[in-house]
Write a protein that binds this DNA or RNA. Structure first.
Lengths: 162, 162
DNA sequence: AGTCAGCAATTGACGATTCAGTGATTTTCC
DNA sequence: GGAAAATCACTGAATCGTCAATTGCTGACT
């Protein structure tokens, strides 16, 4: 068998590994956080969390023209998913579609005034929750380490496509 | 108006805040990671990532009796979601339902031998991806800081239910 | 010019999850 | 000991996403 030192032979061993446990922590933390934010935003601002992320992306640079494809990549959604998400947001009046003047295949998306107002209100709610559950419990240094770690993981994920 | 120093007045300001951007990083990192793991596990082991998490939980302590409710809480799913997930896993033969001897409302779930074998294979795939995208890009110290930060966030989320 | 490969958005079919409500059982409390 | 409240699993309906196929458009190559 020539098992290396890290080999797991029983299910119990495999289920107790450090990496497994710690990745579980990552997943749980983010899903719980997202659930809280989602619930709060729905209740207080009438939008879902993913809609909030769309508005963030659209308003980040008001001069930028954002296509649905860009939106899909930045939010980690498929193009079909974006089509339907923008449908719902357009219906809600927070966002508007506009054909691209330079390429008739692409449709651009922009926030409406109502969308901008909603974003402003939602940002406050969002910040409140994050301060309570993320920046609050962490020291400044811990938080800084946390975000640089995330940064590295994200680049590794984007640059290592295989 | 008496706006504080951190007040955001325009949508562009609100969309460019540090917290907002950094929380976005967290979300993207985890969704991309989960997508990769999910794809790899489906392809190489025939299970989804959430099924993997179920097996992990069930095999962690072979002596423990795990109810569907416990499973739901630990995986951050609703009871309805767990019912259907266990349905699919039972059908696939990785898991078995058993009525609790002490409380006729609860049904216990345990991994079958096939489930344990699957877990062993899946754990290898899982570890490979994590090493590549998480522990690889980070130094030991960074990684340690990362996990303690997650730990704090999780306790804050669990203990602060309001 | 003409074709052809490739990309953007959309859509139908499907999958997985939530929500809200139900029935069966247990626990609590008078 | 018995009524009321809580808890567990399950279900139908709805939500939100994916996947795969389709359409319209662009750009590159001949």
């Amino acid at each position: 068998m020539a098992a290396g030192p890290g080999e797991k032979h029983t299910a119990a061993q495999a289920a107790s590994g450090r990496l497994v446990r710690e990745f579980g922590q990552l997943l749980r933390a983010t899903t719980r956080l997202e659930q809280r934010i989602n619930a709060a935003l729905r209740e207080e601002c009438g939008i879902s969390h993913v809609m909030f992320e769309v508005l963030i992306r659209l308003c980040r640079d008001p001069a930028e023209q954002v296509s649905q494809r860009t939106l899909a990549e930045d939010l980690v959604l498929t193009s079909g998913g974006i089509t339907r998400l923008v449908d719902r947001m357009e219906e809600a009046g927070t966002v508007r579609r506009r054909p691209s003047p330079s390429d008739r295949r692409v449709t651009l998306v922009e926030a409406t005034p109502k969308g901008e107002r909603t974003l402003l209100a939602a940002a406050r709610v969002h910040a409140g929750i994050l301060e309570r559950y993320v920046t609050g419990p962490l020291t400044g240094e811990e938080y800084r380490g946390f975000t640089t770690a995330l940064d590295r993981i994200n680049t590794a994920l984007r640059t290592g496509p295989a």
